[in-house]
Design a protein around this nucleic acid. Structure first.
Lengths: 193, 193
DNA sequence: TTCCTCCTGTAACGTTGTTACTGATGAAAA
DNA sequence: TTTTCATCAGTAACAACGTTACAGGAGGAA
């Protein structure tokens, strides 16, 4: 009973933090600010999340879950290489749809917060979509045999590299550049026909 | 005369900040900490650099200069595509040699600091090495005709994507992965022979 | 109704970036 | 050489941050 109320309150606070993150960016994510957003004291945050890292971990999990849902919504066709391409484009769409979450998860936007191994494991579930797609390409003989995890890492790095520079403001957004970078990685592992 | 002393002091302070950055990471880059490192008050930092962003900008410029020197030290052979590969490997070596600087410049390691356009222009001088190499490949007919800047951006994103994930601790360092990612990008623009 | 446990708000501590004020220092003028 | 004056460094403070000790209150259990 007590637990139910705690869980609801925790979700409510995380939602406020999430809204704050989306509207004002990571800089507004202060304990006092989140507490003020829902009209309570900071003590509540500390009893429910331990410390700021706990709040950050909650946002991490939420971000990964949103990311995962977007990737899971992709229709799974019968073309293995097409699925890799679809995943790559969905990755970009997901990142641009909620850039603040992407910043938190992959650009270290919350100062001083380093996700624990347990939190990072939640990200692996998202990463697995890519690994499975790479493995399917190998099984179909489209990709050279090898470690699908290693392939997925290269694909991921290509996508993240472009998005990272774009979200950091170093490069202006350009879908063609993203397509070139991910295509290069996607086709690198093709069996030389 | 007064100016000379100021410049020397500014370099001295930046050197202390740089040492602090290398040994204890960006979290130790506090105005009080830098001042204590050289045994002066924080006021000196504010008269010389304006505010913390000024110190960060100084470190930015220093980091770019070190980066540039490493890339400039590469022997320029007569093989244009070989030079692109060499630049890619030198980029990794430079990033791993001074990871804290790479974090500051490309991973936003100093909380709240966003480099101004003028500071980013210093980075363009480093980026130009890559653009020139891409243009040389086009001129030699090794690369398809096109915008060498766009090509360089893709190459850069590939390199940065891997290094970014490695330095963030998301992926363990692996030179083969880096080589695969950059090779994929490097060969993507080859003329289809 | 009483009691006990858990939780919340207040207020504080230490640290951060930043700045107003005061005193010293060093170059320029007499 | 002496005086004047502008400029700069140190002290101490401000607001905001993460965090926590303490006291009071609310809620279920007996």
């Amino acid at each position: 009973m007590r637990q139910r109320g705690q869980d609801a309150l925790r979700a409510y606070l995380l939602d406020a933090a999430s809204r704050l993150l989306a509207t004002e960016g990571p800089a507004a994510l202060t304990m006092r600010r989140i507490a003020a957003e829902v009209g309570c004291s900071t003590t509540v945050l500390y009893t429910l999340f331990g410390n700021k890292d706990g709040v950050a971990a909650g946002l991490f999990r939420e971000g990964f879950e949103r990311f995962r849902r977007r990737l899971a919504g992709l229709p799974a066709g019968d073309d293995p290489i097409g699925r890799v391409r679809d995943l790559a484009m969905a990755y970009r769409a997901a990142a641009l749809a909620e850039p603040q979450y992407y910043r938190v998860m992959f650009l270290g936007a919350i100062p001083g917060y380093a996700p624990s191994g347990e939190v990072l494991a939640a990200g692996d579930r998202v990463f697995d979509y890519l690994v499975d797609a790479a493995r399917a390409c190998m099984d179909a003989g489209v990709y050279r045999p090898g470690d699908p995890v290693a392939v997925a890492e290269v694909l991921w790095a290509a996508a993240h590299g472009v998005l990272s520079l774009e979200l950091a403001g170093v490069l202006p957004p350009d879908e063609d550049r993203y397509r070139a970078a991910t295509s290069a990685a996607t086709e690198w592992f093709l069996t030389t026909s």
